[in-house]
Design a protein around this nucleic acid. Structure first.
Length: 417
RNA sequence: GGAGGAGUGCGCCGAAUGGCAAGGCAGCGGAUUGCUAAUCCGUAGCGGGUUAAACCGCUUGUGGGUUCGAGUCCCACCUCCUCCGCCA
């Protein structure tokens, strides 16, 4: 959600920013609702002031005076009730319009129409030259019985996988590595719940667009989270930090659930795109002055992890059209997948500025008074996709896989064969 | 799942026969003294309004209702606690 005062003073900026994201908004309607709201509010506050005065008088008054005041107030009450009903309607509509407006992209975000306009910033890591025919992760997994997709389909349906044997060990080793690296920067580890109330999910701004992506447990009116940031953000809703406690950094590990409703026929094979995957996620609460710096830190930690795993990757600056509602700026990291001969997304980090904190009412107290925090998130490791990257990048001619040295201390083996 | 109790200004404690939400702690800002700190003063948030102020309004877990008037009475929901049941 944007600040109504900001919208009032900069309607053109808001309109332009929304257009860059490909979101059409009716700013005229919004501003007229806002004006109406304030007019009604002033009338109602006059009535309320009268009521408060009468209240004082009534205490001092004698019996006769009391009766006359009460009679008068009864009429005023009826009159103000009409205004209050109207105000409620206006506020409801205003809120609806306000929530349609996405977060505005930062100035430096590349302008674009679709994901094709995302900008590759740099490529890191040496892409190996293989002197043998490369296999994709599914071939490798099948030979060593590391991923069972058929039986996963039998018990749960399409887009699920059962991770087995060394791959399962690898899973836990990756979590350990992510915790080891993030703790250097003071990230507090968390195991969040995977179910969440609708109003908290809405606070993060994921429901307006893309609500179809979310699993809903109707009987209990709870959603399944698509990422642990959906818990970590609302965790502090309604709270006020002290500026000294910022940045507040968390790293959460959880299963993530996605319906993949819009991606029928896309990546249907294997475990690249599944309904349930496990992810280690970083999250920061910080001040407006420090959020850009924090965003670069999150990106640098993601790169540190990729370098530790010896996986070649590229950093992508996401264009305006591909940002999503809450983000003002976003970087993706795409890992090189030799089996597919292309880069595939493994990480994403967003600076959501005060868009979510305004909805969730998360603030901090500092020299400037009480202000909304900035909120940022970034993938540490999406385990499934990282396992794929490791398998494909570190495969050998005989079909075995060499474990990157950073992971070996967490594993009882140095290679998978 | 059943029975009972509770929720009061970012936090902690806590008062208020249906009639202006006391007070204390912590934190923060300031003053003063000077040495492992003490003392004193100020300080809730949000909205409207204003160049700025003044000023006005709202907020007792949430949403409704009764009433001229609700922290207080009624209804629903949320959360926490106690007991019973079930349970990894």
């Amino acid at each position: 959600m944007l600040d109504i005062k900001f919208i009032r003073e900069n309607p053109k900026v808001v309109e332009e920013g929304s257009r860059k994201k490909g979101v059409e908004i009716d700013i005229e309607l919004l501003l007229s609702l806002d004006k109406q709201k304030r007019e009604f509010l002033q009338k109602i506050e006059e009535f309320r002031a009268q009521k408060n005065k009468a209240n004082e008088d009534i205490k001092k008054a004698n019996k006769e005076e009391k009766e006359s005041i009460i009679k008068k107030m009864r009429d005023i009450g009826k009159e103000s009730e009409k205004f209050e009903e109207k105000l409620k309607e206006i506020e409801k509509e205003l809120n609806k319009e306000l929530r349609k407006i996405p977060n505005l992209p930062l100035e430096e975000v590349p302008l674009g129409q679709s994901e094709k306009d995302n900008k590759v910033l740099r490529r890191e890591g040496q892409i190996r030259e293989f002197d043998f025919p490369v296999k994709d992760y599914l071939e490798l997994a099948e030979k060593m019985d590391l991923i069972d997709i058929k039986r996963a389909a039998k018990v749960s349906g399409t887009r699920f996988g059962i991770i087995k044997k060394e791959a399962a060990y690898l899973h836990f080793a990756l979590i350990s590595l992510a915790l080891e690296i993030t703790q250097k920067y003071g990230f507090v580890p968390l195991l969040p719940p995977v179910m969440i109330r609708p109003e908290m999910m809405e606070g993060m701004g994921y429901v307006e667009r893309g609500g179809d992506e979310i699993y809903h447990l109707e009987k209990d009116n709870l959603y399944l989270i698509g990422t642990s940031e959906q818990i970590i953000g609302p965790m502090h809703s309604g709270e006020i930090f002290n500026e000294k406690e910022l940045p507040r950094r968390y790293v959460g590990y959880s299963s993530c659930f996605r319906r993949e409703a819009g991606s029928h026929g896309k990546d249907t094979k294997g475990i690249l795109r599944v309904h349930q995957f496990e992810k280690v996620e970083m999250f920061s609460f910080t001040t407006p002055e420090k959020s850009k710096e924090e965003h670069e830190l999150l990106l640098s930690i993601e790169e540190e992890l990729m370098q530790a795993l010896e996986i070649p990757y590229q950093v992508v600056d996401i264009c305006t059209a591909d940002l999503g509602d809450p983000a003002a700026k976003k970087y993706d990291i795409e890992a090189w997948m030799p089996g597919q001969n292309q880069y595939r997304e493994t990480h994403s980090t967003s600076n959501c500025t005060d868009f979510q904190s305004r909805r969730l009412n998360i603030r901090y107290k500092g020299k400037e008074g009480v202000r909304f925090t900035h909120m940022l998130n970034g993938t540490a490791l999406a385990i499934g996709r990282i396992i794929i990257s490791i398998m494909e990048n570190h495969q050998q001619a005989d079909g075995s896989i060499v474990i990157p040295s950073a992971l070996r201390k967490y594993l009882p083996f140095k290679e998978i064969k």
